[in-house]
Each structure stands twice: as C-alpha cells, then as structure tokens.
Amino acid sequence: MTKRIPIFAHRGASGYTLENTFKAFEKARKLGADGIELDVQCTKDNVLVVYHDFNLFRLTGVKKNIIDCTYDEISNFPLGKPLLRRLSKERIPTLKQVIEWANKCKMPLNIELKESLLTNQKPLKDMLQRVVLPEGSHFSSFHNELLRIVKMQRPEFETAFIVTKAFNWNDLITSTYFDAVHANKKYYKAKYLEVCEKANKGIRFYAINGAESFLYDPHPLVIGWITDFPDRVAKIEKIKK
C-alpha cells in the first residue's frame, strides 16, 4: 500500500470559492482536505490577519497596504472580485479566529508568514508564545528570518522554507531553521529530490491541480500536496489505496 500524502488546500478550496475565507476553509474540509494552507499578514495595530497580499486592493478595492490600516478598518472591507464585492458578506478573518476553528475541527494548518511581519515581529513572537495548533500543523515562509523566529520561540513546531528560483538547493544541507521545503511542482525533479534526501528534509509541492502523474507514485520524501482543488487530489489518494 502506498502511503497517504496529506493534502493541504491552498488558501482553502480557492479553486472553487474566495481564498482565505471561512467559506473556503469549510469547502476544503468537505472536499477531503487534510489541512489548510493560509497566509498571515499584520495590521497597523498588531493584529495578525489571514490575507495573502501586502496591498489590499485586489480583493477589497482599497488602495492601501495592510500595515497602514487598523483591524477595525479592514474588518469592514467586503472581500471579493470587483463585480461581486458589493454583495459579499466575507471579511478578512483574524488568525486567532481561524486557529479556533481549526482546533475545533482538528484541521492542521500550514501557516505562511508574509512580508508585513518582517518589520513588525512582536505580534508573531507574542502569538508563538501562547498558541496551540492542531496536530500536523506547521509554519512556512519565503523569509528565513521569520522561520528562525518560530524555531527560537517554539522549536517543536515544524518549519518549511518556500524556495524561489534564486534558492541555492545545496544550502539545504547546512540550513538549521527549517525542517522541510515547499516548492512549486516544476521542481519535482530527481536532482532536487536528491538534495532533499541528502539534507534529510521532506518536501511539499504546491500548484498541484490533480493532473500530475507523480501523484500516483510519489517519491518517499514527499510529505504533502498543496492544491486549489483538494477533491481532485483526494480522489487519487483513494485510488492509491
């Protein structure tokens, strides 16, 4: 029997509904996701919120950066694409609210730490000192500095570095502040998997859409799929059984 690879829904079931909302998270759970990937930014008044972009314009129509707004301000901004926004009841949730939901549902979280935390690290440190997360949760980031903070505050939490084109894969062997790698599926190649094996680090792949042939017989180092379409990947996991 091939081992089951945990499926993390990218910003919730974002292939079907509005990203990083409770609607997307609930949809993902119903579609068979094993966990939720979400993004964390910080407001002007130090509230950690679940939102992807540094600028609010794409989903709120407000031309402001998130660090220039208080949570009271952004909590009143309807979320959605331009034509649907006026009728939307969706709002930007706080990380605290999402963690409470996740603990209640026993839904692991892949918490991606975003750029607004680089210049205001105190809210992250405060959160780490007291947070309780569902089993199987972890932190990820493009920013090694933020993963270093996680490890210093809570060494028991798994951390994962999100690689870019500029990343030197040979640095994996000497990296100490992250336990795993998150990479676009284009990096599902033998040369990168071999480096992960030498570094003894697992890898999760994102941008998975369910059509990838490697889903049926994944490399032993793969520890997760990150997808907008959790139902498609869940169907393949059932076939593998």
Rank of each mutant, 00 (worst) to 15 (best):
R11N: 06
V150M: 09
L79Q: 08
L109E: 06
D231F: 12
I239W: 14
N55E: 11
S175F: 00
F229A: 10
T176R: 15
I5Y: 09
I162H: 02
F77I: 10
A9Y: 04
I236H: 01
A180M: 12
P78E: 02
L38K: 05
S88P: 05
K106V: 04
D179M: 10
K63N: 13
K27F: 07
S141I: 04
G80C: 05
Q121S: 10
E112S: 05
E212I: 09
I67L: 13
K89L: 12
R91P: 01
D217N: 15
V181D: 07
P78G: 04
T17N: 05
V40Y: 09
L124F: 00
D39P: 02
N20Y: 06
H52S: 02
K64S: 13
K235G: 14
K81D: 11
K89G: 12
V98A: 04
L109T: 04
T60V: 00
G15H: 01
M152I: 13
D217T: 14
T60K: 02
M107N: 09
R204N: 11
F167S: 11
K64C: 10
P230F: 03
S75E: 06
K151C: 09
E194D: 13
E115C: 12
S140I: 05
Y51D: 02
E212D: 00
S116P: 04
K165N: 15
S140V: 02
K185G: 04
S116Y: 05
H143R: 02
K191E: 03
T43K: 00
F77Y: 15
F22L: 10
T176Q: 15
A211I: 13
H143K: 06
K122W: 09
A9D: 01
E156P: 06
R58N: 07
S75M: 09
V163K: 10
L59W: 10
L147I: 06
A28I: 06
E197G: 05
A166R: 14
E26R: 10
D39W: 09
I236Y: 08
Q41Y: 03
E90I: 02
V40Q: 05
R148T: 14
L109A: 06
Q121V: 12
F139M: 04
K104C: 13
K44A: 04
D72L: 12
C42G: 04
Y71E: 01
I226D: 00
P108T: 01
T94M: 09
K165L: 15
I149F: 03
H138Q: 12
E90V: 07
Q121K: 15
T21W: 11
A33Q: 06
K186D: 13
S175I: 12
K185T: 11
T60P: 04
K151Y: 01
K165R: 12
G224H: 07
L118V: 03
T70K: 06
T60G: 07
F142D: 07
K106Q: 15
W101D: 07
Y16D: 08
N110L: 02
K240N: 14
I239S: 11
I74E: 08
R85E: 00
F229E: 04
